[in-house]
């Protein structure tokens, strides 16, 4: 399945756009997506850290993704 990953902050620069399309196996987990993202965009490994959010909540590595999920990459936050 193809999932669309929204990007913010420095992740937009790394993706060179406000989102990226990633090919995953059916029933892929958040960890699988992390691995696929790091392979496609090695600069992500230089970040202090990054989280993934699914449907507006921070996701755990073993959460299973659905094609319709709203997925976002969350680089280190710095609000306030």
């Amino acid at each position: 399945m193809k999932v669309n990953v929204l990007a913010f902050g420095i992740a937009k620069e790394i993706f060179n756009g406000s989102s990226a399309e990633i090919d995953l196996n059916e029933e892929a987990t958040v960890s699988d997506l992390r691995t696929a993202l790091e392979e496609k965009y090695p600069r992500l490994k230089q970040l202090a850290s990054f989280m993934l959010a699914v449907n507006n909540e921070y996701a755990e590595g073993n959460d299973i993704l659905q094609q319709r999920d709203e997925i976002a990459i969350i680089p280190p936050v710095s609000g306030g």
């Binding site: 913010f8 902050g9 420095i10 959010a53 921070y58 976002a72 969350i74 680089p75 936050v77 710095s78 609000g79 306030g80």
Partner: peptide
């Protein structure tokens, strides 16, 4: 807020 809210500066 500075640790969890997805806002970037």
């Amino acid at each position: 807020l500075k640790e969890t809210v997805p806002i970037w500066k």
